[in-house]
Amino acid sequence: MTAAIASSELTYEYAPGIGAVGLNLEVPAGKVYGFLGPNGAGKSTAIRMLISLIKPQRGSVSVLGLDPWSDAPDLHRRIGALASDQPAPRHHNGESFLRLLADIRKQPELVARGHQFAERMKLDLSKKGHELSLGNRQKLGLVTALAHEPELVILDEPTNGLDPLLQREIGVLLREIADEGRTVVLSSHSLHDVEEVADHVGFIREAKLVEQLPLAALAERAVRRVRFGFGDVDVSASDFGAVPNTENITVADDGEVTVQYRGAVAALLMRAGELGAVTIEAHPVELEETFLALYRGDEEVET
């Protein structure tokens, strides 16, 4: 699979351990990549390197095959970027700012597309930058990042300050962009923000990339829980002892057995059937717990 972004040992440290250290990012083209981590973990530093705001101290990075520092103008022609807490220009309203960007990019059609996005996000383009609320500034930033139809969209905390309905709408919009074969990178400190839209996720903690995997693989890795009812049949925890990838088997007073497992469920179901299970209750995978475990740096990732 072609990588829209590939980095090797990409590093920018403000102080030892502060910033982004040794990142080996691999963002597949045409997918939505959720870049996750706690506040201050290094997401914005990494994104600043990707969009040419700061020059890496070590390592290398290729964005759409270009070096963000030495090929910045060519790269910026092909990407749309939203920096963290990006302000709106004070002296422009949304309309005049779109026109300015259309002039700079020599893309007159950018204005009409900007209007479409603004309408979709319910953004009033007649207001000046200093009159906009946090949410509306964010909307304007998104409109200007998307209006030139970039091949790659890099958004730092794009849903910051947006209401839940609009957050969902942004998710739909980003999904549409990926479905057109374009690539989206969005950072967030919350898995909830990206799990509906992302194909891949990368976790950064304390300046280092600790995980990078398809979202589906994250779900597979999660520990799941299932509860069996056996009616009048007495079953003990040891009856499940031979089933692979099971753990924490408990038997309740009413005889129900709860089993935690990872990976494929077939062996567990077969054993439960042999023992005469009459009911089964599966608990949904709580990715949030998995995410929090990565946040905390737990050795085990559990639900």
């Binding site: 705001l53 103008p73 910026h76 022609r77 970027a81 920096a83 990006q86 302000p87 700079i104």
Partner: peptide, 17 residues
């Protein structure tokens, strides 16, 4: 300082320009 520069730095204009 007020970060408004960022919207221009991410446009296809070189820093030199």
């Amino acid at each position: 300082r007020d970060q408004t520069l960022v919207v221009f730095v991410v446009q296809p204009i070189s820093r030199r320009r």
